[in-house]
């Protein structure tokens, strides 16, 4: 019965939670917090069930397509949102985080490749490490982006001596700065691990050894990922050795630029010819929104879910 969960179920739940977050700006309600957490929790549960069914019903390694990767990243970000909302009931995290969750789901459904990545047993372990670490790095960058935006908004308000609006209460600058810095540290660590595992993965798939799945070192996604990593590493090193750079506004701007680099990397993945992730030249298909929806629906049905 639970296999009837579709993308629409959890996307709609997150959408309602976001709408409720936005209503914070308009009016007060004693029950909204609980209803919001209820919808976000229901969404996360449906999301978990959906991913579980994808994992157990997909031929080959579980959750190994670009689409799954996006949906998993959205799941981690939604879990972070739920955690933060439960422990900071008055702060409007959802206004900043839920659009990113929905964006990841949208990118996963409409833009990402549903075909599993090409893999061979020798590289399975490194492939998993690569995928998971890059996923966590992306989530950390998105959290850093959201906390960076919150920081800038909060600092702007405080500089202009405006009392906090009841609807858009945010955590203190100190909290946001710490969260921002942690997000940078985690994203550097995860991106570094992702790149290292990527190098090992590529060496295992040497063209002269296997001939298949080898990725050119000048692949656009690889270059963009390296650029993001180098930028993040420089930001972190500057913060470590130059105390002023550790102060909130600068870190917030660092994370905004990092997010921009991430968006470029993802856009490159969707827009340019790349062999990353075993992506192959596909036969022309129906790329209209309806066609893609039909495609997703068909795929979910094959996996046992009712679209």
């Amino acid at each position: 019965m639970l296999s009837g969960v579709s993308v629409v179920c959890f996307a709609a739940s997150y959408g309602v939670a976001l709408a409720l977050e936005i209503t914070r700006l308009l009016f007060r309600s004693g029950v909204r917090g609980a209803v919001m957490i209820g919808f976000a929790g229901a969404g996360l549960l449906a999301h978990s069930i959906f991913l579980y069914h994808r994992a157990v019903s997909t031929q080959g390694p579980p959750l190994s397509s670009q689409r799954d990767w996006y949906l998993l990243a959205a799941w981690v970000l939604a879990a972070i949102y739920l955690y933060l909302t439960c422990f900071h009931r008055r702060a409007a995290f959802g206004v900043f985080l839920l659009p990113l969750v929905l964006g990841l789901i949208g990118a996963g459904v409409w833009l990402a490749d549903p075909e599993p990545f090409a893999r061979e047993p020798a590289s399975r372990m490194w492939g998993t490490v690569h995928g998971v670490s890059i996923l966590l790095a992306v989530v950390a960058i998105l959290v850093g982006f959201a906390t960076g935006l919150m920081y800038l908004h909060q600092a702007w308000r405080l500089k202009r001596k405006i009392p906090p609006t009841l609807g858009l209460r945010l955590p203190s600058l100190e909290w946001l700065q710490q969260a921002n810095l942690r997000a940078v540290v985690i994203s550097v660590a995860m991106l570094g691990l992702g790149l290292l595992s990527g190098i090992i993965l590529n060496l295992i798939r040497r063209p002269e050894a296997l001939g298949l799945g080898h990725l050119p070192w000048d692949d656009p996604i690889v270059i963009c990922t390296w650029a993001t990593f180098v930028w993040l590493l420089i930001s972190l090193l500057v913060s470590a050795f130059y105390r002023r750079a550790r102060q909130g506004t600068r870190v917030a701007y660092f994370t905004l630029v990092t997010f921009l680099l991430l968006v470029i990397a993802l856009a490159v993945g969707f827009g340019l010819q790349t062999e990353h992730g075993g992506r192959r030249e596909a036969a022309p298909s129906d790329t209209s929104a309806l066609g893609i929806l039909r495609d997703v629906a068909g795929e979910v049905s094959r996996d046992g879910a009712v679209p």
Partner: peptide, 13 residues
């Protein structure tokens, strides 16, 4: 107002 609306919005502790 100084403490609740401003100081606490800057510092966490």
């Amino acid at each position: 107002v100084a403490v609740a609306d401003f100081a606490r919005q800057i510092f966490e502790r």
